[in-house]
Design a protein around this nucleic acid. Sequence first.
DNA 1: CACATCCGGAACGTATACAATAGGTAGCCA
DNA 2: TGGCTACCTATTGTATACGTTCCGGATGTG
Lengths: 252, 252
Amino acid sequence: MSQSWAAPESTATGHEPATPKRQKKRGDGAERLDTIYRSISDAVIEHRLKPGVRLREDALAEVFGVSRTGIRKVLQRLALEQLVTLTPRRGASVTRPSVDEAKDVFEARQMVECGLMEAAARRITAADVKSLRDMARREREALRNREQRVAIKCSAAFHGRLAELSGNKTLADFVGQLCSRSSLILAVYGNTGHLGCESHDHDNLIELLAAGEGRKARDFMGRHLKSIEASLSIVEEPEAAPDLRDIFSVNP
Amino acid sequence: MSQSWAAPESTATGHEPATPKRQKKRGDGAERLDTIYRSISDAVIEHRLKPGVRLREDALAEVFGVSRTGIRKVLQRLALEQLVTLTPRRGASVTRPSVDEAKDVFEARQMVECGLMEAAARRITAADVKSLRDMARREREALRNREQRVAIKCSAAFHGRLAELSGNKTLADFVGQLCSRSSLILAVYGNTGHLGCESHDHDNLIELLAAGEGRKARDFMGRHLKSIEASLSIVEEPEAAPDLRDIFSVNP
DNA sequence: CACATCCGGAACGTATACAATAGGTAGCCA
DNA sequence: TGGCTACCTATTGTATACGTTCCGGATGTG
C-alpha cells in the first residue's frame, strides 16, 4: 500500500541515485531535498497518497536515496504546512483533516481568495490571461479524460496562480497552503465523481478578471468556493473506531 | 553581540543544562525543543535578537544544552515562519524584512484581522473580555514603564488572542505569524520611541467587541492597523549593501 | 478458554562523526 | 608595495550509530 506512490517518474530525480558523485557541485544538495518535498507534496495533493497513510522515514529514505536526516527535514516542512501529521513517537502520516479544520480552511479561502480578487483584476496582464486560460484548458481536458488526479492538481495550481496575481507573496503562499489542504479535504469528504470545481467556473473567473471587473470576480469567487464546499459531505467519518458502544447501542 | 540574548531567564529552562538526567522520562524531548523554539521566537519578537544577527548552530546548541540536531529542527521551523532566514551555506540569521514584505504583511493583516472581527464580536464571552482587558492593561503598564520589549510582545499577543476569538484556528495561526513578522518589521522600520499601537486603541476595540458591534470593530481595526503602518518609515535601509551600483551611479 | 504479562522487533529521537565549502589570512610574485 | 593565489579555519550539510519507546505475538496462569 505504501509502495503505490513509489514511482515519482517525472520529477527530475532521474540521476543515478547510487553514485551522486558531485554531479553539479552547486545547488545539488539543497535542490535534492526540494525535489523530494515536491514529490511527496504532489503525491498527497493528487491523492496518490491518501489521508491516513503512514510515511515511514526508512522507506522514504530508501526510495529517494538519501538518509533519514533529509527525509525528516522534508517531513517537518510538510507537517508545518499541515499536509502530514507528526505524531510524537508514531512517525508521520498523511493528514486526515477534521471536520472543524475543513470548515476553517474553506472559511479562510473565502476570506482571502475573495479579498485578493480586486487587486488581481487591477494587476492582471495579457500574459497572465493567456497563462490562466492555458491552465483552465488543461484542467478541462483532464476532467474530460477522467484523470481526476491531474484535474485536482490543476485546480489547486489555478487557485494558487490566481492569488499570485495580487502581488502579495505572503497571502499568495497562504492561499497555496490552503489549496493543498483543500485537496486533502476533498480526499476525505469529497464525493467521488464530482470534483469540486465546476468545469467552466474558472473560465468565467478569467473573463471577469480580464475585463477588470474586480468586484464581480470577487463575488463570483465567493459563489465558486461556496459551491465547492457545498459539494462536500462534511460529516464525521465512521472510521477510526469512534464509538463501538454507540454503534451497538450499549449505554455506558 | 550575539550573546546579548543568552539569558532566557524566565522561559522555564531552569533545569541544570549540564545534567538533564531523564527528569521526567516522558514528554521530555518533545517539550524541550518546543521550549527552545519559544525562547528564540520570544527573543526575536522582543527585539533582543535584532534583524540580521547570525544564529550559529553550535552556539545555540551549547546554550540550550542540546546537540545541533535539535537546533536545526527549531531553526527550520522558525525559517518557515519567516522569523529567521536560512542561507544555504551561511547558516541562519534573524530575518530582515524587505520593504515589499513589510507591505505584504500589513496588507494581509488588514484583510484577515478585519475580516475576523465580526465573527469575534459574535463569539466573544465575558471571560474573553476579562482576559483581553487584562492583556491591554499589562501592555499599557509596560508602555508607561518604557519597557518596549514587553509592550511589543504584549501587543502581538493581544492581536493573536483577538484572532483566536473567531474560532478559526487556521486563520488565527496565520495572524499569529503575521504579528510575529510585524514585530520584525517594527524593529527595522519603526521609529524608536513610538511603539506601533496607540495606548487606548486596544481598549476601544475590546469595548466594541464586548458590545457586539462587529462592524464597528472591523472598521476600527482597519484604522488601527493603518495607523500602525503609517507610523513606520518604510524605506530601503542603507544597510546590507543593497545596491552599490545604484549608490555610486554605476550603470551595469 | 480467556486474560494478563512478558519479550522481541521495528520505528522514531538524539547525538556524534565525517565531508564539503566559503571566507579570511598570510605569503609570494610582479 | 599592491595584487593575486593558496592554504586554513570555521561552519554548515549529510550520514550513521545508538538509545528509547511502542506495538505485536507468544506464553503462562486462573
